[in-house]
C-alpha cells in the first residue's frame, strides 16, 4: 500500500467536507474492496475518509411503506433483518449468495454499490486496462475473457459488475439517496451504475466525493422470487451468471414481472420492455424462454465467454420456474 493520511469522520457533513478538500481522497467503510485494491496498487488514494462511525446504520420503514437501508448497515445485518427477510426475500437471498460470512459482516450497503470489477486485467497493473488506466487499451477483449460481459460492452471495456446485492436492488426498483456538496438527491437504481462506453474508468454516475447515505426499497413487494447464482464453486465465488427474478400471477397469467441479470454486464442488467411484453402471458417455460431470448437478443460473446449467453437464457427460465414454486 502507498502511504496516505486518514480522518475518522463523525458526521455526514464532516465526511463530505473532508473528502472534497483533500487531494486524491477516497471513502472507506467496510474496506473489503478498497484495501484489497490498495494492496495491489490499483487504488492509490492519498487520503482516506473513514465513514464507519457515521450514524447511517439504521434499517427503518419509510413513510410511503417502503424500507430504508442505511448505507453503513452491513450486508449481513441487512440480509438477516426481519423486515428484509419477510418483505424483500429476493434481496436477502442475493446478499447471502455473495462473498463469505466474514466479508458480509464487514461490507456495507453503500460500499457494495461501489465495488469495482473483478476483471483480472483490471487487477494486474502489468497489463493495459482502460478502466484502471484510461486510454491504455483493453486486455480482456482479445485475452482470456471467460468471466467477462456479453451485454452492453464497448470496444473499450468488457468488464462486469461483481455485486449480487445490486442485482436484486436493480430488480426491485430501489432508489439511492445521495448527499454531496450540491445537497441531497435521489438516484433511481437503474441510473446509478453505467455502461462502459468510451469512459470505462467511470463505474457509476456520481461525482467523486458524493456520499450514498441510504438505499430505499419500494412499498411494492413480491412473494414469488428467486435469486439464482451460477458460479464455479458452490459458495464464495463471483457469479458467472445470476438472475434476480420476481413475479406475481393473477388468474393464471403474469400480473407483474421484474428481473435483473448479474455477471453479464458492466451494471446489473434490466430490460423493462421485455418484462412489459410478458404481462398477461401464461407462466410457462416457453414464455420464460421467450423473455430470455428477448433480453439476450443483443448479447455478444467473446473468445471464451459465449457460453454465458445460453447459460443466462436457461438461468432465466430456471429462476422463474423456481420462483413460482416458492411457497
Amino acid at each position: 500500500m502507498n502511504s496516505f493520511s486518514y480522518l475518522r469522520a463523525v458526521n455526514v457533513a464532516d465526511a463530505v467536507e473532508d473528502i472534497n478538500t483533500k487531494n486524491k481522497a477516497k471513502f472507506i467503510a467496510g474496506g473489503t474492496n478498497i484495501l484489497d485494491l490498495m494492496k495491489v496498487n490499483v487504488e492509490r488514494p492519498e487520503h482516506l475518509t473513514d465513514l464507519t462511525r457515521l450514524p447511517l446504520t439504521e434499517i427503518q420503514n419509510t413513510e410511503d411503506g417502503g424500507l430504508r437501508l442505511g448505507a453503513l448497515a452491513t450486508n449481513a445485518v441487512t440480509a438477516w433483518n426481519e423486515q428484509v427477510q419477510q418483505r424483500y426475500p429476493l434481496l436477502a437471498k442475493a446478499i447471502l449468495a455473495g462473498a463469505s460470512a466474514q466479508l458480509r459482516n464487514m461490507a456495507t450497503n453503500g460500499g457494495n454499490l461501489f465495488q469495482r470489477t473483478r476483471c483480472y486485467y483490471f487487477y494486474d497493473t502489468a497489463t493495459p486496462c482502460n478502466k484502471r488506466e484510461p486510454g491504455s487499451g483493453c486486455s480482456a477483449i482479445n485475452g482470456y475473457n471467460r468471466i467477462h460481459a456479453v451485454l452492453g460492452t464497448s470496444e473499450h471495456c468488457i468488464a462486469t459488475h461483481p455485486s449480487d446485492m445490486c442485482v436484486a436492488l436493480a430488480a426491485l426498483d430501489a432508489k439511492v439517496n445521495v448527499t454531496g456538496t450540491k445537497g441531497d438527491w435521489v438516484v433511481d437504481f437503474a441510473d446509478f451504475h453505467r455502461l462502459p462506453g468510451d469512459q470505462p474508468e467511470l463505474d457509476n454516475n456520481l461525482q467523486p466525493g458524493d456520499l450514498v447515505t441510504s438505499i430505499d426499497l419500494p412499498a411494492k413487494t413480491f412473494s414469488k422470487v428467486q435469486y439464482l447464482k451460477l458460479r464455479d464453486r458452490q459458495s464464495y465465488a463471483f457469479a458467472i451468471v445470476s438472475v434476480a427474478a420476481a413475479i406475481e400471477l393473477e388468474g393464471g397469467t403474469i400480473k407483474e414481472i421484474q428481473m435483473a441479470l448479474g455477471g453479464v454486464a458492466h451494471k446489473p442488467w434490466r430490460d423493462k420492455s421485455a418484462e412489459a411484453m410478458m404481462i398477461g402471458k401464461t407462466p410457462t417455460k416457453e414464455n420464460f424462454r421467450l423473455l430470455a431470448e428477448t433480453v439476450l437478443a443483443t448479447a455478444k460473446g467473446y473468445s471464451y465467454n459465449s457460453f454465458k449467453i445460453e447459460l443466462a437464457k436457461r438461468a432465466i427460465v430456471r429462476a422463474f420456474t423456481e420462483a413460482l414454486q416458492a411457497v
Partner: peptide, 24 residues
C-alpha cells in the same frame, strides 16, 4: 480476504483482519 486464515472477532463478530485498518 479470500482464505479466512486471518479471521478474528470484533465485538463478537467475525471479520477478515487483513481487510481492515487497525486505526479503524
Amino acid at each position: 480476504g479470500q482464505c479466512g486464515a486471518c479471521t478474528v472477532l470484533v465485538d463478537g463478530i467475525r471479520i477478515n483482519s487483513c481487510l481492515t485498518l487497525a486505526v479503524m
